[in-house]
Structure formats: C-alpha cells, structure tokens
C-alpha cells in the first residue's frame, strides 16, 4: 500500500512536469470544462428563477444536488480518465502489454499513467456550488456535516469509477469501449436533479442498479434534513460493493485479453 502511494506520487510528479511544459494548454484544459458547466448552470438558473420550486426543491437545493454530483464526477475525471481511452489509446496500440510485464498491478498502472487536469475545473465548480448553496440555505458546517460530505463525495466518486471500470472492461473484447462507457456514464444526468421528479422505476434504477443517486440526491437530502431513511448512510457501502464487483469484472476481462498484436 505504501509502495503504491509512493509510486502514485511519482507518477503524478512526472505528469505535472509534462503538463507544465505546456502551461497554456494546461490552463485551457482545466478551465474549459468550466465553460460547459456554466451553460448547464445558466439553464437551471433561467428556469428556476421563474418558478417557485421544482417538485418542492428550490434553486439552492437543486444547486446542492448538482454541486455534489459535479464533485463526485470530477473525482473520476481527475483520477480515472484513462478508463475512457483504454481501448483506443492502450489496447489498440499494444501499449497495454507494457503494463502487463511490469511488477505492479496493471489497473493501478493504467489509472496512475495519466492524471487528468481537465477535472480540476469541475472540482472547483462543484465545491463552489456546494459552498454557495449551503451558505444560502443557512446550513451550518459542523465537523460532522463536513465529514459526511467528504465521505459522500468520495463514495460518489468511487461509484463513478466503478461503473466506468465495468464498462471499460468491454475494451478487452471490442477494443473501442467509449460508446459502451458513454451510455452508462450518461445516465448520471438523471442524478443532476432530485430523483423524485422521475417515475419510481427510474428512481429505483438510480439507487440499486446504476446507483448515481448516492452521488447527489441521497446525501443532499440528508444535508437538507429530508427523510430518505437508511439510504442517507448507504453510499459508502454501495461504493465498496460496486468497486469489488468492478475489480472482479476487470480481472475477468484481463484473463480474456488477447493482445492486438501490434
């Protein structure tokens, strides 16, 4: 564990050296996602400033849901972006074979290979949204609340990573896995809003099958004092279970990996 932490740090340092070679690109990359977020946020603001509430949730409460989701999403974006491109950048080129002959876990190597700075902008936007919305709603930042949010975001991030890991594993068979990942990943958009606006089936889907609800709706409900029962506390359990399942699926895929031979 200690060895891996040291290794990760070393990878990160190397990555930043590369990024700092192209400072302008670094800044544009890190801030470009902000522009996309602003478009989405302006949309919510335009609509919510004209209606009193959305299914009983006001603008600030919606922003809290949105902010928590953005924070969780930024975790995958920063630390696991290579899961998107494993097929086209590593397997197709044969570069993936390089990971298999090294004395470290191939999955660790894949993830550590590229810290993605584009996620930093999303992280800042998410943190800003959570800070602004909770301040406007008069929610006190007790140590317990803070700990809860940190754990919720970490769990949400883990759920994002685990789902991407499962879909990325398809690359071992079909090489280009982005379309598969994209379809499952895009369902996180449901969790941008309170799950109560959807029919029950979608709520159940977002809780038990593709559990992005734990990255936004359930923790937001808890912070806002809305009763969601035990689901307010289940995020970390769901995250761990999903990570274990994801890693199993990954190992299964790895066993079936036949190099492209290039």
């Amino acid at each position: 564990m200690k060895r891996y932490a040291a290794l990760y740090w070393y990878f990160l340092l190397q990555r930043f050296k590369i990024l700092m070679e192209y400072r302008v690109n670094f800044l544009i990359g890190a801030s470009s996602t902000v522009i996309l977020q602003i478009a989405g946020l302006l949309t919510i603001w335009v609509i919510m400033s004209q209606v009193p509430n959305l299914n009983g949730w006001n603008l600030n409460e919606i922003l809290l849901v949105y902010g928590l989701l953005t924070l969780s999403k930024s975790i995958t974006h920063m630390f696991a972006d290579n899961l998107w491109t494993i097929g086209q950048d590593y397997i197709r080129s044969g570069d993936f074979d390089r990971f298999l002959v090294r004395p470290i876990d191939p999955l660790f190597h894949l993830l550590a290979d590229r810290f993605c700075h584009d996620g930093i902008g999303n992280f800042l936007i998410g943190a800003g949204l959570v800070a602004v919305s909770t301040a406007a709603l008069g929610i006190a930042w007790t140590p317990l609340n803070l700990l809860y949010v940190v754990i919720a975001v970490a769990s949400g991030g883990a759920i994002f990573i685990a789902l991407n890991l499962i879909t990325a594993t398809s690359a071992f068979w079909i090489v280009q896995s982005i379309p598969v990942t994209q379809i499952i990943f895009n369902t996180h958009e449901f969790a941008k809003y309170p799950l109560t606006i959807y029919p029950r089936a979608i709520g159940l889907l977002m809780t038990w099958l593709i559990p992005y609800g734990f990255a936004s709706f359930y923790p937001a409900s808890y912070i806002l004092g809305r009763d969601v029962g035990a689901l307010a506390w289940m995020g970390p359990i769901v995250a761990v279970v999903l990570l274990v399942v994801g890693y199993r699926v990954w190992l299964f895929g790895l066993r079936h990996y036949a190099s492209t031979g290039s």
Partner: peptide, 23 residues
C-alpha cells in the same frame, strides 16, 4: 451510442419540464 444517449437526455428533459410546469 448517440441514439441512446439522446433518448436518455430527452427523457430527463421531459420529466424535468413536467416538474417545472407543475405549479
């Protein structure tokens, strides 16, 4: 992929707007 992704976002938009127009 785009077909499915667009269906998903249409779904989200429809439920979202229905909730907006509730009041």
């Amino acid at each position: 992929m785009q077909f499915i992704v667009q269906i998903l976002s249409m779904m989200i938009f429809v439920y979202f707007w229905r909730a907006v127009y509730a009041d």
